[in-house]
Every structure is written in structure tokens, then in C-alpha cells.
Amino acid sequence: MDIAENAALVVVDVQKGFEELDFWGARNNPGADDNIAALIDVWQGTGRPVVFVRHDSVKPGSPLRLGYEGNDFKEYVEERRGKGSGAELFLTKTVNSAFLGTPDLAAWLTAAGVSQIVVAGIQTNMCAETTARMGGNLGYDVLFAYDATYTFDLEGPFGWRRSAEEIAQASAVSLHGGGFARVVTTEELVGAAGA
């Protein structure tokens, strides 16, 4: 796997509010946070750009709403912000895609000459997947760090209920099989990016 010298790591919504399991329900992939941290460390250590995305929910009861502590980045992310030698962007959004946030992600990537992005963060099937899909639609070479994401059990139409692991796998199949992104592991990315 080739990782561009200026490939951007897009860290999506790694916020304290996702720790409130009474709100979200059961999750998968307990190792996701360690993998996200490892990716940030390698990206910062190699001078590659990192984008930190925060979801500012407009829903009054959301654990991710502005003014509530759950809106803050998890400690390990906050501690890493501003530590790299490469470019860094902080953006906020109120919808699923980081490409519809402020400031404009695509404009920032274009100005920096970035054509390859790596997507990690929360939730696998929501904001991480939507960002990856839109990145693919916009023509970026998208790598989706599957084990550096996680999600929660979810109920859909017709009483269908799926576990977090089933949902995450379905996202990976859709992204990879549909040609939106290449679904890869943290180990593969760390090895290819090389510190």
C-alpha cells in the first residue's frame, strides 16, 4: 500500500459524548481508540496533515451538543492536537459529512495539494462512512481505517435490528465493494506510512 507523503488523516468525531453508552447502546471494537491514537501519532511523527473533526449536534438531548462536555474531544485526541510538524485543520459540522463542515475541507485539501485521505473515527456507519463516501465521490483516493472506527447497535425499519459488528461490516462491504474507499487496517496503514 502506498501512502502519499501528504496524505491527510481525517479524524472524525472522537468525542466524549460517545462514551455515554446509556444513550448509544452496545458498541463494537474496543480497540478503536488505541488504533486512532496510533494513526495520529504516525501521521504527526511523519509530518503528514491531520484533520480533527468535531460534530456539533443541533439536537437538544444529544451528548454531542455544543456547551455540553460530551461535545469535547476525548482526552487522548485533545492531548495530540497541535503536536505534529505537519499541517493541521480543525473543523466543525452539524451533519454527517466532514466535507460539509466549516471551514471547507475540500478547499483546504485542494490548497494543500492533497489527493489521498485516510478516514478514522466515530461512528463507522455514520459520519466516518459518509465522509469516506463523499471523499470518493469528490475524487479523493480514500483509505478507510476499519479498526480505527466503531459504532453501536441500531434499529432500522420493519423492526430490523443489527449489532454494531454487523453494521460495521456492512459499512466496510459497501465502501470497499462499491468503490468508494479501500478498507484497510491500522497495522497496514502504520506499516505503509512508516515513522
Rank of each mutant, 00 (worst) to 15 (best):
E166M: 12
A87E: 04
E155N: 13
F90I: 07
V50K: 04
T94W: 11
V190W: 02
V119P: 03
V53H: 05
N29W: 00
C127F: 03
I122V: 15
E165W: 03
S174P: 11
F23T: 04
V12C: 07
A148N: 04
A106M: 06
V119D: 05
E166F: 07
E78I: 01
L138K: 09
D41H: 05
N125E: 12
E19L: 14
V11N: 03
D72I: 12
L64F: 05
G61F: 12
E88Y: 04
M126D: 06
G61E: 14
T110C: 05
G121L: 12
F180P: 00
L9N: 02
V10P: 04
T130S: 14
A164C: 02
K16G: 05
P30M: 14
A132V: 06
F152K: 01
V58S: 12
V58E: 13
L138R: 14
L9A: 02
L138M: 14
D34L: 15
D2Q: 09
E166D: 14
G194K: 07
I122M: 13
W24R: 06
P60Q: 10
D104K: 02
I40A: 07
Y76P: 03
G159T: 15
H55P: 00
V50C: 02
A170R: 10
G25D: 14
D153W: 06
G45Y: 07
K83C: 12
T131Y: 04
V58A: 13
W160N: 14
A26E: 15
L109R: 00
T124P: 02
I36H: 01
L143R: 04
D72M: 13
P30W: 12
N6Q: 10
T102W: 11
A132H: 02
A7F: 01
I167E: 07
V51D: 07
G191L: 11
A26S: 13
P60G: 11
G70Y: 05
Y76A: 12
D41W: 05
V119H: 03
S57W: 08
T151L: 09
A168E: 09
V173E: 14
V11S: 02
Y146A: 15
G67H: 09
P103G: 04
T102F: 10
E75K: 08
A107K: 00
A32F: 09
A8F: 01
N96S: 14
Q169H: 13
Q44R: 07
Y146Q: 12
N6A: 06
R182N: 06
L105V: 01
S115N: 04
G47E: 03
G82W: 14
T94K: 10
G31D: 15
P30N: 09
A168N: 01
T130F: 09
A181H: 02
G179T: 08
D33Y: 11
V42F: 06
R27G: 08
N125G: 08
N35H: 14
T110H: 05
F73N: 09
S97E: 04
T92N: 10
K59V: 14
Q15D: 10
G61V: 08
N125C: 08
F52L: 13
D153Y: 06
G136S: 06
D13L: 11
D56A: 13
T110P: 03
E155P: 04
R182L: 10
V42E: 09
R65S: 05
G47C: 03
